[in-house]
């Protein structure tokens, strides 16, 4: 029996990470920014029906970058988890933190045990009710989880976006208009081209809404906000 080739664990992890990073770098970017009424999510997405941003539960939204089939599966698993928990206990017991932990576990397990890691990076964001702060979790392909403040970025060219936003994001200038302008400017800056509004997917978690806080902002409304 021939001996299997020996590959050191370090080498194997490095190869997997490189593979996953390459896959994610090919994808477009998504930004989540805290604004005065909650959290705004903007994705560079030319499709009007294949969403990258989605509602998970009352105050929780999900967004995925990288391979569509993979983050779509994660999105569905998240909705099932949230709906089951809300049905078993109560709606207020469904939290972004527990969801983010679940995603982190899944991605971590797949990264270390499967031959092929998932080529995805995801965001789980939860808008806080009046007295509670917002929560934004970024989870990367290997399951590592980051607790973000102010803004979070996933997808290709996320470092450049991060730098751009770090320079310009001001917590006290956070009307919907200012925030949406900032997001489009950031996406245009890294793609170095004018992005038509048709190519953007925009959604918000608005803490002033009753019940389900997630809402998509259609192109016509985005245009109106920006003028």
């Amino acid at each position: 029996m021939p001996l299997p080739y020996y590959v050191s664990p370090e080498q194997m992890m490095q190869d997997k990470a490189e593979y996953a990073k390459k896959g994610i770098a090919k994808g477009r970017s998504i930004i989540a920014v805290e604004y005065q009424d909650g959290i705004l999510l903007v994705a560079d997405n030319p499709s009007a029906s294949l969403y990258k941003i989605s509602e998970i539960y009352d105050s929780i939204a999900f967004s995925g970058a990288g391979k569509y089939s993979e983050f779509e599966n994660l999105r569905k698993a998240g909705i099932r988890h949230a709906d089951l928990k809300g049905f078993m206990y109560s709606r207020e017991d469904v939290t972004g933190r527990s969801l983010a932990n679940g995603y982190s576990q899944t991605l971590g397990t797949i990264f270390s045990q499967e031959l092929k890691p998932l080529e995805v990076e995801i965001l789980v964001v939860q808008v806080g009710e009046t007295d509670r702060p917002n929560e934004m979790y970024r989870i990367s392909f290997d399951g590592s989880i980051f607790d973000e403040r102010g803004f979070a970025v996933i997808g290709g060219r996320s470092e450049a976006l991060q730098a751009f936003l770090k320079e310009r994001y001001k917590a006290d200038e956070s009307s919907l208009k200012a925030t949406l302008t900032l997001c489009t400017a950031a996406l245009e800056n890294i793609t170095s081209q004018k992005l038509p509004l048709e190519g953007l997917e925009v959604a918000a978690l608005d803490r002033h809404r009753v019940g389900r806080k997630f809402r998509r902002i259609p192109i016509a409304e985005s245009r109106q906000i920006l003028t």
Partner: peptide, 23 residues
């Protein structure tokens, strides 16, 4: 958390069916 360990074979959009098969 069982729904997270592996992706469920169940791929429908019905919560009712989901409970029926998994819980």
């Amino acid at each position: 958390m069982s729904s997270f360990h592996t992706f469920p074979e169940h791929d429908g959009s019905s919560f009712f069916d989901y409970l029926l098969h998994h819980r």
